[in-house]
Design a protein around this nucleic acid. Sequence first.
DNA 1: TTGTATGCGTTATCAC
DNA 2: GTGATAACGCATACAA
Lengths: 333, 333
Amino acid sequence: MVTISDIAKSLGITPSTVSRALSGSPRVKESTRKAVEKAAERMGYERDEAASSLRRGRAKVVGIIVPRINREFFSNVIGGAESVLDNYGYSAIICQSHENTSDEIKALKTLRSNRVAGVLISHAIESTNGAHILENIDQGTILVQFDRVFSSIPGPKIISDNFRGAYEGTRHLIEQGYKKIGIIAGYMSSEAYAARLAGYKQALSDMGMEIDDEIIFYGSIVQKGGYEAGNIAIDKGCDAIFSTGDYTALGALQAAKERGLRVPEDFGIVGTADERFSALITPSLSSMAQHPYEMGRRAAQAFITSLKPEAKVGEVVVPMDLIARQSSTRTTI
Amino acid sequence: MVTISDIAKSLGITPSTVSRALSGSPRVKESTRKAVEKAAERMGYERDEAASSLRRGRAKVVGIIVPRINREFFSNVIGGAESVLDNYGYSAIICQSHENTSDEIKALKTLRSNRVAGVLISHAIESTNGAHILENIDQGTILVQFDRVFSSIPGPKIISDNFRGAYEGTRHLIEQGYKKIGIIAGYMSSEAYAARLAGYKQALSDMGMEIDDEIIFYGSIVQKGGYEAGNIAIDKGCDAIFSTGDYTALGALQAAKERGLRVPEDFGIVGTADERFSALITPSLSSMAQHPYEMGRRAAQAFITSLKPEAKVGEVVVPMDLIARQSSTRTTI
DNA sequence: TTGTATGCGTTATCAC
DNA sequence: GTGATAACGCATACAA
């Protein structure tokens, strides 16, 4: 492996100058910079990130912690984040919390051990507050939260416009003529889900409809839970459901089909997140699209910006868009 | 940050001993090991991976390079690999090649810069040989290939039983009574795809059917290409198609539907990879399931095993299983 | 603008 | 079984 000393020797200068030239310090003559760069190229030099990290106390790495990497939403966030980090010479270490707090803590410890410069995190559903996050991240590591955030933790937050999204999704169902609309609401310990429930309620009340606690289904974010909620909703006389996730919406769709209800004629469904399967199933599933790739980019940008101590990034809100498909569109062409 | 020197001081011993105790060296008295471990725990010690990497010349990190992280297949491979690496104290850096060689090289350079101990790679479709891989990985870095491999590159390879899988998928279509079966074959520069084509041909000839080059469609692995191939296949009189991917199979399904063909009655389809959407679309898509999580585990295990210089891992073949669904099952219950 | 000197935290080698 | 010492490659404070 060729080092800066090798380059220095070959050029008859010292390693310090080479280091400065390579890291873009202004205190280097233009001509020597050129010479160094050419020599580095020619000799196939590549910075030893371990040495650099040790010396600087920080690695050019950011950790990204997500509940699961195989959810399209999260893998796209990661893709977006990497596309930005790449441009700034940062790599990403990806960690999964599997939705539980202990894995989240483990990931944070790993990242701290690696002296990462930043952590982008969307918290596990099991984590009801951010205490363990603050405890396992050290001062000087930039923390950016996205999607599932704790407002009690200071710093940049990239979130979907959850309130507005749920509001629009619910209003869409009302406009399609559905009369009794339930909601698969998820976990209220997550602010994202709480905001969606609030948007749903607001839409109902704005449109003069009654809010019925009996048809608000808490506590699930997976298909099976959606299936169960869907069945109860049908029992309670619902003719539509707004779901805060697409997997749960899929479960509800399954329930409606099994009960012999036609979707969308007898039963309307709108999900959230616009997973890839949503466009492909029959009937296709209407969904409130988030913009995961864009959210990832924003999160990474927030990190980059925060590298300058004076710059402060607050909350970035990314809109959600209604993708109306068959499952909620009664008047088809 | 607490260091091994801090621990040493608090115990009245030297950093060397602490280091040995913590890294499980046998040359440490049991009682001092205990004492060190307790002190480390109490003082909240976490090893500085940067320093450790620099000293050892290797980071406790493996790089995983995949074409795209948001393909379910690859994200599951990553999940499987991490589940194993975790147990051995290794982290993973995930890189995407976006199917092109230049990004693949960039990723390899990044990983070399980080002195990773190993690289798990499934090559980009654009890469027609492995020369650039060998050039951009240094001696001593363990290279494990999975799924899309080059047999010209020595070392562990975790592959699906592509020949057998395609053979079974094709035979299944024949047994269902389809008479003219085309194949969406992918890129022959990839050995995985070449093996699938070979399996398809073998099945046809074993069952006494003719191999017709006109209905072998090369060169696409995305939905649009599958759609185009599907249309031509129908024009050429095919009544079924075996596809080496699910996205392409989805495109073929779309073509068949648009042409007014009933699937599976008039036209049969079997895909490959069993993506999540395959079970959810209508008609549900038959597919040759790979086992990505298991492949990821095997790849990581191959890496761990290869850490011992004497141990050699060769080729690990993971079976593919036919998941027969509606798109190819004429005799439904 | 460049050089000199130092140390980041760890681990390996050697000596005892 | 433990200690002393050095070195990994780089980046910076300071001197020139």
